[in-house]
Amino acid sequence: MSQATERRTGRDETEEERADRMWSELIQEVRVAQMGVQILFAFLLTVVFTPTYADLGDTEKTIYIVTVVLGAAATGALIGPVSLHRLVSGRRIKPRAVEWASRLTFVGLVLLLATMTSSLLLILRVATDDGYVPWLVAGVVLWYLICWFVLPWWTRHRYTSRD
Score class of each variant (00 low, 15 high):
residue 20 D to G: 01
residue 74 A to N: 10
residue 102 S to M: 05
residue 59 T to M: 10
residue 86 R to T: 06
residue 80 G to V: 03
residue 150 V to L: 13
residue 23 W to F: 13
residue 155 T to S: 08
residue 4 A to R: 11
residue 136 L to E: 03
residue 156 R to W: 11
residue 41 F to A: 12
residue 65 I to H: 10
residue 60 E to S: 06
residue 101 A to F: 08
residue 119 S to E: 02
residue 140 V to Y: 09
residue 55 D to H: 07
residue 92 R to C: 03
residue 54 A to Q: 15
residue 134 P to Y: 02
residue 132 Y to Q: 00
residue 65 I to D: 08
residue 106 F to V: 04
residue 83 S to Q: 03
residue 7 R to I: 13
residue 85 H to L: 07
residue 56 L to A: 08
residue 19 A to Q: 04
residue 154 W to Q: 04
residue 35 M to H: 12
residue 61 K to P: 01
residue 94 K to H: 06
residue 92 R to S: 15
residue 25 E to H: 04
residue 3 Q to F: 14
residue 82 V to L: 14
residue 4 A to V: 07
residue 66 V to C: 13
residue 130 D to S: 14
residue 80 G to C: 04
residue 144 Y to N: 03
residue 74 A to Y: 06
residue 128 T to Q: 00
residue 38 Q to W: 10
residue 107 V to C: 06
residue 58 D to I: 05
residue 23 W to T: 05
residue 69 V to S: 07
residue 18 R to G: 00
residue 150 V to D: 00
residue 38 Q to G: 04
residue 32 V to L: 15
residue 80 G to S: 14
residue 17 E to V: 03
residue 6 E to D: 12
residue 92 R to A: 15
residue 57 G to F: 10
residue 20 D to W: 06
residue 19 A to D: 09
residue 115 T to M: 09
residue 17 E to W: 02
residue 141 V to I: 03
residue 4 A to H: 10
residue 84 L to V: 09
residue 100 W to E: 07
residue 31 R to I: 05
residue 26 L to V: 01
residue 51 P to G: 14
residue 160 T to R: 01
residue 151 L to V: 12
residue 47 V to N: 09
residue 117 T to N: 02
residue 161 S to W: 03
residue 120 L to K: 03
residue 71 G to P: 08
residue 163 D to G: 13
residue 151 L to F: 04
residue 7 R to D: 15
residue 161 S to H: 04
residue 2 S to L: 06
residue 107 V to D: 00
residue 52 T to Q: 15
residue 98 V to T: 07
residue 39 I to V: 14
residue 77 A to M: 14
residue 74 A to V: 03
residue 3 Q to N: 13
residue 80 G to H: 10
residue 87 L to W: 14
residue 153 W to M: 14
residue 149 F to Y: 15
residue 107 V to S: 07
residue 6 E to A: 12
residue 87 L to T: 03
residue 125 R to I: 02
residue 39 I to W: 08
residue 152 P to R: 08
residue 9 T to K: 10
residue 76 G to Y: 11
residue 56 L to Q: 11
residue 162 R to E: 11
residue 125 R to G: 00
residue 139 G to Y: 09
residue 136 L to N: 00
residue 73 A to Y: 04
residue 106 F to T: 11
residue 134 P to H: 02
residue 144 Y to M: 15
residue 112 L to R: 02
residue 113 L to D: 12
residue 126 V to M: 03
residue 159 Y to N: 00
residue 90 G to E: 07
residue 29 E to G: 11
residue 10 G to W: 10
residue 78 L to E: 14
residue 34 Q to F: 11
residue 74 A to M: 07
residue 154 W to K: 01
residue 76 G to M: 06
residue 4 A to C: 00
residue 158 R to G: 01
residue 12 D to K: 12
residue 60 E to Q: 15
residue 108 G to S: 07
residue 75 T to D: 12
residue 138 A to W: 05
residue 77 A to L: 13
residue 12 D to P: 00
residue 61 K to W: 07
residue 25 E to N: 09
residue 82 V to W: 12
residue 74 A to T: 01
residue 87 L to M: 12
residue 155 T to P: 00
residue 82 V to N: 05
residue 34 Q to G: 02
residue 122 L to R: 09
residue 120 L to V: 02
residue 116 M to I: 01
residue 51 P to W: 05
residue 34 Q to W: 01
residue 128 T to L: 01
residue 121 L to A: 15
residue 135 W to H: 11
residue 105 T to H: 15
residue 144 Y to P: 00
residue 7 R to S: 12
residue 19 A to E: 08
residue 76 G to D: 07
residue 44 L to Q: 01
residue 49 F to W: 07
residue 20 D to R: 11
residue 98 V to W: 06
residue 141 V to M: 06
residue 47 V to F: 09
residue 57 G to Y: 02
residue 37 V to W: 01
